[in-house]
Amino acid sequence: MQDNESQWLTRAQKGDSQAFAHLVETYQRPVYNMCYRMLNNAEDAEDAAQETFLRAYKSIKRYDKNRPFATWLLSIAAHYCIDRIRKQRMKIVSMEDLPHIHMIDDSPGPEVIIGRSEEQNKVRRLLDSLSSTDRAAVIMYYWYDFSYDEIAEALSLTMSAVKSRLHRARRSMAQKWQDQSNQQIPAERRRHGERSPAF
């Protein structure tokens, strides 16, 4: 597999698009997942993943073979998504101002396959509460097992910045989780209260 990848990379660096297509086939899942977790929308994630591979193809000659290809690729994806979120935030008023229905993408896609479980929505909301760079750091740390060093390299940050961003993100997510749980309990009480006099 590694040998194949090395061969594909060598051929792709010489301009062979078919060889690069093999790399697209191999890495489509991690790149798509990164884009989906960053953008919270299947359509945007597909577009961002496609764009990531196009950008990677265009700059494949600059890729240093001593570096893991996945790190390089996910770094492109993360930077692209961060830019996209910033542009969206400049264009649209605010993500928080959007009605909740927009946050839950109802177009048929892979999220339909895995099911719209409440847990997934919770993860989605947690990630959405973070800034784009913090979100990228969390995704790289928890989904791809990147080390602090790798995250720092991928996001063009220092290692101490990565540590402090992750620390801040963890605290923010825990507090958000706590708030959600606190909101859920009275809501459930109200719901049960309407049906049953026991509440």
Binding site: Q28, Y32, E46, Q120, V123, W143
Partner: peptide
Amino acid sequence: VAWTEVENELQFAPTLSPAPGFTERWQ
């Protein structure tokens, strides 16, 4: 407790796949 639950959610969240034919669409 909240952080333990969040960490669990993050660790067990699946890796999502794109719709079939991604490579063809890229080409």
